[in-house]
Amino acid sequence: MEEQNKKEYLDSLNEIRSLMEKSSRFLSLSGLSGVVAGLTAIAGAALAYYYFNGKIFEQNFIYDLLRSDYLELTNSITFLLTDAIFVLIIAIMGAIYFTNRKAQKDEAKVWDLAAKRTLINLAIPLVTGGLFSLVLAYHLQISLIAPATLIFYGLALINAGKYTVKDIRYLGILEIILGLIASFFTGYGLILWIIGFGILHIFYGIIMYVKYERR
């Protein structure tokens, strides 16, 4: 068989492989959005640090908070929720911005079927976890909010990992492990939350950026 034919077959196979991947996975997700999410989480934690006069890392922080009077407790919960919502909004905006930028660079369409699937599969555990955290706050079980957000976020990443860059699953597994540790050692909840949402995101984002985007 001539070399030319062989090359043609190889090209066909490569095209098939690339189409299979492009059509089933959302590949425009940028590592930089992970870095932004991590930095935002740390900034949110810093804000909480100042709000509570540096007490958030103390082992008994949450128990002291629960023993405070009702007004102070509701104020604290309101602050924490607002803080968390701002962190979430900024992290999502960062993800949208860097994803758009990466898609433009790759000349890919951002909002395709794979992107929708990724988002839906991410959203189901994530929204469940968000509502569950509100329920925990309602029952004043605030020591379990940090672990719950870590666990549900980890599950969301694993669920979405089927439709986007595979590596996101490993991040999900690490978040779940941290969440489970945090649910036993509730005194360390906030530190583990900062590790999970801050430091892990930054590390993961940099690794993804170096692996797939730097050229």
């Binding site: 098939i16 299979m20 059509s23 395709d112 079927l113």
Partner: peptide
């Protein structure tokens, strides 16, 4: 045709416009 089949092997189903964009 090869492209259409590749896409439909890995996805349960696909609509016309998504196929058009992909190919």
């Amino acid at each position: 045709r090869l492209g259409i089949m590749s896409v439909l092997i890995v996805n349960d189903d696909m609509d016309f416009n998504s196929l058009k964009d992909l190919l």
